[in-house]
Design a protein around this nucleic acid. Structure first.
Lengths: 148, 148
DNA sequence: GTTGTTAGTTAACTTTGCTTATATATAAAT
DNA sequence: ATTTATATATAAGCAAAGTTAACTAACAAC
């Protein structure tokens, strides 16, 4: 399963590790509170501060606007979001997180980070600096080859 | 949204980056070939070489054995897996990947890596070494606090 | 060999997510 | 003012995933 590129191999090891340790509890938690993958995708979209129109969310999730509209209905029913009319263009509905929605999103992110926090306390200050420096190179380069 | 821990912040930035760049094409691809999240989960379970009984897979995915059995049906219909009787205990069915299944799994992993390969070629040898060294520290430490 | 346990299947049902097609309201264009 | 385009909603219908409950077959124990 190893390639000839040890950068790729190491990065993949890191992804596998992250998936197993951090994503597992993430999925368990979201399942526990009854949120589906698309719904989480929508919440994350909002959290990123991306444009909040229905069709934007649909595009982002790769589904039709109709599908997005229906899925958001369920989030409205759960009182995690609100539809509000855009004053500039009354055709568009801006989706905004309710306090409850913001709280749940925070919890979700926090659960995903529990493992990361353990890791952070286990690392020495020097190790952390080294890792931060390396990851920043990686982020900068990624931005460079495909900016957004 | 920033914490007081710049290690955690940088790591999260990196995760976000990876999710947006790499997982996006991953989801598009799996959607294109008609595989759902649970099905992919099952394939990944098998790929890890974990125990291949139906209930093991169900446990791993956090669903009932009945649900796992039905979901695997669909993978059998798509000829990605085979059920085979365990010779040691004829009650258990071992799930094995077909050639087609193995091929698709390889493709899935490869798609996830396309972005990573671009990144690898964009980085200098020195940068890569630095990142590899840092990630290895991270992996080693993670293994240390929660071995498996 | 009966009795109980375990692994998996099957059936009936519910919920979700998706699609297409149709409808409505607003905005933009001419 | 009328036409056209855009943003969303709604309806009908399908497939997938999940549940519980009832069932079969194989193993284990005594």
């Amino acid at each position: 399963m190893k390639s000839t590129d040890s950068f790729i191999d190491t990065f993949n090891d890191c992804v596998d590790l992250f998936m197993r340790r951090s994503m597992r509890s993430f999925f368990q938690y979201t399942k526990g509170i009854g949120l589906s993958m698309p719904q989480i995708g929508a919440l994350f979209h909002l959290n990123r501060g991306s444009t909040s129109g229905i069709s934007n969310i649909g595009d982002d999730l790769g589904v039709t606007t109709a599908a997005a509209s229906q899925m958001l209905d369920r989030l409205v029913q759960q009182e995690l979001i609100l539809r509000s009319e855009d004053p500039d263009d009354r055709r568009v509905k801006n989706i905004i997180l309710t306090d409850k929605g913001r709280k749940i999103l925070e919890d979700i992110l926090h659960v995903r980070q529990a493992w990361l926090e353990d890791l952070s306390t286990a690392l020495s200050a020097g190790e952390k600096e080294q890792i931060i420096a390396a990851l920043k190179i990686l982020i900068a380069k990624a931005d460079q080859i495909d900016p957004r």
